[in-house]
Amino acid sequence: MTTGAKYTRQDFQTDQEVRWCPGCGDYTILASVQNFMAEMGVDKEKIVFVSGIGCASRFPYYMNTYGVHAIHGRAPAIASGIAVARPELSVWVVAGDGDAMSIGGNHLIHALRRNINLKILVFNNQIYGLTKGQYSPTSELGKRTKSSPSGSIDFPFNPVSLALGAEATFVARTIDMDRAHTTEILNRAYEHKGSAFVEIYQNCNVFNDKAFIALTGKEERDLNRIPLVHGEKVVFGPDRDRGVIIEGGTARIVSVADVGIDAIHVHDATAASAGPAYALSRLSHGPFGPTPIGVFRSVDRPVYEETLQQQIHDAQAKKGGGDLAALIASAGTWTVA
């Protein structure tokens, strides 16, 4: 991160009235992102925010950068075109859980596998807010909503597992209320070369209030947050007496005293295999108990648009800049006198 003090949070605010419901977690995330953008030091004309449809997707209107409020689910596709056309831009995608993983699931997984330099922030509130309260692809089984009065029978996605399965090179999870942690994760995502998937647990106080209470409640949070720190043992709890071991590809929560500290898993976000990160992601399926928070995976892989740029460079070095008249004549010509 550069320390350039050329911007303050105000530089990233727009003249638009912010229209989320009072108390919405989106306000906190907006503040975190605006603060981070000021710290990030990238010229604001080089920043683009792209969103789909949903509450979260109003985000670009409130960011004084370039932006597109696009179509439900399509933000990763549109952002891909921007990033591939102009690799020097800093392109950020903001999506909700329905936008990213239901109607836009296909675009999300393909943007991740291509490793296009997009920073994809998924505000996961486990509900459809803008359409007033239907179950989403991350709502828990049995959830009673307007469209599931007898209880949801849709098994939910685990967003981190999904991103890891989609060959994402950077996968992290954070919580709206925890601005320090959110900022740290935003910075890690920004510094990562390639696509970054950030799941942000976001409270919808109107349609799904306290969905993340296990991780945000004063009494619960220390019991349930499992901080993932690269190079360190995965331990948690107020007394750091609980830990995670991985055996046969499966992660399990144990008492440190029972297994001994040496048996506890050391988190390696840069591991060649996504296996341990995946195992950690399976510790929770929705934030109802101990849930890992932090960077699950951060590995290097060629960035799509950089490789494309290289192909263009190599082709030009080999064949020259391209002569259209010569190309058209290359298929064989004849002359009529």
């Binding site: 596709a77 675009h107 082709a315 030009q316 080999k318």
Partner: peptide, 20 residues
């Protein structure tokens, strides 16, 4: 024709092609 600076993008579907 990469040497002409042409960028081609084989998208995951028709929708993404239009979007990109």
């Amino acid at each position: 024709h990469r040497n002409f600076g042409v960028r081609t993008f084989q998208a995951e579907d028709e929708i993404a092609a239009a979007g990109a």
